[in-house]
């Protein structure tokens, strides 16, 4: 995992004909972390989705070394399946073994719920299940969109520990959050500073 790296330069995002942000630069090496902050709708989630390769890049470049895992507002687990089987599908796609999956369940204190169908889980438990999916993936770069939403204090602490472990082995974490949460010394990106002024925006259309 030590080869992981994430470099954004001059990144801009255009959605629905509107320039959300422009000129975002970020360099993260192995063990680095970044925290995106700013008001709702400013483009934090869009930036994470661009980093994941799910949204087109309007301008600038993203240079990514390593695999990515994304935790956004959607669970991406089959509702009818028991938790460990729903997570097991992703584990098989990621070619990680049962032990790694169990460690991830344990890290999010979900081990007692492994046989419970996903649809029976509460909001906070689902959020933890999603984080367990990210942890189990073994991906180098974690993209976390509001990871602490809906979590109680104990679960936030678990998340903090998982993130610290990931950084310690040379992973990269980019989180969008309103709370400073879990990251000890992140690169802070104030999205508000990257909103283009309206005159410039008009010339883009």
């Amino acid at each position: 995992m030590s080869g992981a790296a994430l470099r954004l330069s001059g990144l801009a995002c255009l959605r629905g004909g509107r320039l959300l942000f422009a000129g975002v630069d970020l360099v993260l090496a192995a063990g680095g972390s970044a925290l995106l902050h700013g008001p709702n709708g400013i483009g934090k989630s869009s930036l994470l989705r661009q980093c994941a390769g799910l949204l087109p890049i309007y301008a600038g470049t993203i240079d990514r070394q390593g695999s990515v895992a994304l935790a956004d507002e959607r669970l991406a687990l089959d509702m009818e399946l028991p938790l460990h089987r729903a997570l097991g599908f992703w584990a098989r796609l990621d070619r990680v073994d049962e032990a790694a999956l169990d460690r991830a369940l344990h890290a999010m204190a979900l081990a007692p719920l492994r046989d419970v169908p996903v649809r029976m889980l509460s909001t906070g438990q689902r959020k933890r299940a999603m984080l367990a999916r990210v942890i189990a993936s073994g991906a180098d770069i974690w993209l976390l969109d509001e990871p602490a939403n809906g979590l109680d204090d104990a679960s936030v602490a678990l998340l903090g520990a998982a993130v610290a472990d990931h950084l310690a082995v040379g992973g990269i974490v980019v989180a969008a959050s309103h709370q400073p949460l879990l990251l000890t010394d992140p690169v802070r990106i104030a999205m508000a500073a990257h909103v283009p002024d309206p005159a410039q925006e008009a010339s883009c259309d």
Partner: peptide
């Protein structure tokens, strides 16, 4: 698509 499963598959380079 709504559950984010298609996105998660795409993340894995499929």
């Amino acid at each position: 698509r709504d559950a984010g499963i298609l996105d998660q598959i795409a993340l894995r380079g499929i």
